[in-house]
Design a binder for these strands. Sequence first.
DNA 1: ACACCAAGTGAATGCGTCGTCACATAATAC
DNA 2: GTATTATGTGACGACGCATTCACTTGGTGT
Lengths: 208, 208
Amino acid sequence: MATQKKSTEDRRNEITEAVLGIVQEHGQKGLSIAAVARRIGLVPSAIYRHYRNKDAMIEGVLDFVARRLADNLATEEGTCSSQTERLHNALERHLVMVRQNRGLLRIVFSDDVFGGTERRRTLLGGIVQRYLRAVADIVAAGQKSGEFREDIDPSATAALFLGLVQPLAVLWHLSDGKTDITRMAEKNWKVFLRGIESAGTSGTEGTY
Amino acid sequence: MATQKKSTEDRRNEITEAVLGIVQEHGQKGLSIAAVARRIGLVPSAIYRHYRNKDAMIEGVLDFVARRLADNLATEEGTCSSQTERLHNALERHLVMVRQNRGLLRIVFSDDVFGGTERRRTLLGGIVQRYLRAVADIVAAGQKSGEFREDIDPSATAALFLGLVQPLAVLWHLSDGKTDITRMAEKNWKVFLRGIESAGTSGTEGTY
DNA sequence: ACACCAAGTGAATGCGTCGTCACATAATAC
DNA sequence: GTATTATGTGACGACGCATTCACTTGGTGT
């Protein structure tokens, strides 16, 4: 009845938030236009004022994810002394993101975006590729600066970097947040670092 | 009409296969009882002769996955000279599995099993945990035999091992099978190995 | 040859879904 | 204050879905 009207921009944000929340709590199965509407105090048909259809709504969420991922890597160049540190920062941020946004993993892997239309998969593929590319760039920079070995492949290494987090995210999710992924990530980071840093650098040797 | 009758055991296998195929081609969204039935030349209601309901049907698929994963690690103890080799074998098998069974990743991450009921998530969690445990055991064995460093944590390392494959699987899927994940996996394996093997062992140093 | 039962059939039910449309109303511009 | 327009409403249609049930049919053991 006396529902206050808001701008489409605001509503879109509310909707994205609602989608993530719902997927987090009830999975993609619980993700219906009706559920989204209910969660932000609207009537189902109102959603269509802000998104053409359900697909468009989900693309909105994808955009959000893309922005977050990009932010994770956008460490201000000046403040970081080494590429190693930049990577490590990115790792930490990634973990925080996973932990804060439980719905994220589910929606990314949800059939809607992961297995959806060709178009959708390409979209997500682009996001992932861009992220990996950015990581690869950092690795390459590290090679130039002498921090990292010359004989590693930047893009493969980027994938491995992602592998530092991904299984943990899955694990964390499946254990209902009970696994201490931060600690495990830190341990694996050491292994990872040892694998990529150039021979002379022995920063982590004595840490244990 | 003149549909030949088969034993439930046979039908269950057919159904599992059909489910994987459908999910591979059309995603979980395309996975309906009707679709499964059509694919194996039956009528929808016939499925219920072999599975109580859709959930049970999907559990059948999960069982299949669990068996495959277990097989990947069950390298006959005798034939393997080192734990390193065992791990490497498991890695290769895992990759083959990913490549052969495109639907697998999608169904595992599909909402049905990944975000389904508590029960379902626990089931999947158990499978993953068991796999990780098995890997961790190999790592621990490697530590005892002196192949691997003492200061790495077996279970964390197991997660990282999974991380060798997981991002690649995702990448592979998103690129429609165009990424050469075998090569990337091999490169990352070297990095991984360098990170975990004990100081003296320099098996991979000169490989490049 | 026959009886029994597991496997297959087809129709029907009930539910939840997306999306549309004519109408109502709050906010804004003038 | 009034006109305009973007936002919100409620009813509705069409569809696909999982599941049930009474019935039929093919295969197997005897």
